[in-house]
């Protein structure tokens, strides 16, 4: 069964990490990623830019564009994983492993209802391609 692990954390905190701290977290996470990859549980994952770069389209009539994220929350949606696991317990176990590698904040675990694994025809411009792969 596919689950999405939605990563919430205070972006104030995450975006004040020094490069070394960020690298250290990514290094620890990459070990968890490798394990998931090996067991065939790892689906697409990504890391989002700061909510300061976000714009929100309110689907009113006519639609309205608002600067900033949809929800003003104390912790922000900063990325997500898609994992293929047996059940919620297995998804929670993964979240616990990820949480040890990257403490602070929370993972929201949601079963996926529809999954369209479209692929881009060729390589696309991503800010941090190697991490997005990991």
């Amino acid at each position: 069964m596919l689950y999405a692990l939605l990563c919430y954390n205070s972006e104030d905190v995450v975006f004040s990490w020094s490069q070394e701290e960020d690298d250290a977290v990514m290094e620890r996470l990459s070990k968890v990623h490798a394990k998931l990859h090996e067991s065939g549980q790892m689906g697409p994952s990504l890391r989002l830019m700061a909510t300061t770069t976000a714009a929100t389209l309110r689907k009113s009539d006519p639609p309205v564009v608002i600067d900033g994220p949809f929800a003003e929350t104390k912790e922000q949606l900063l990325g997500f994983y898609v994992v293929d696991v047996e059940n919620l317990d297995a998804a929670l176990a993964i979240a616990k492993d990820l949480g040890k590698a990257n403490p602070g904040g929370a993972y929201e675990i949601r079963p996926i209802r529809l999954f369209l694994p479209e692929a881009f025809p060729e390589s696309v411009a991503v800010a941090q391609p190697e991490t997005a792969e990991a």
Binding site: M49, A55, A125, A127, Q128
Partner: peptide, 16 residues
């Protein structure tokens, strides 16, 4: 690349 992408996204938003 990461900072450039962020900067371009922000200036894009500002110009709107």
């Amino acid at each position: 690349r990461e900072l450039i992408t962020e900067g371009l996204a922000l200036i894009d938003k500002a110009m709107r």
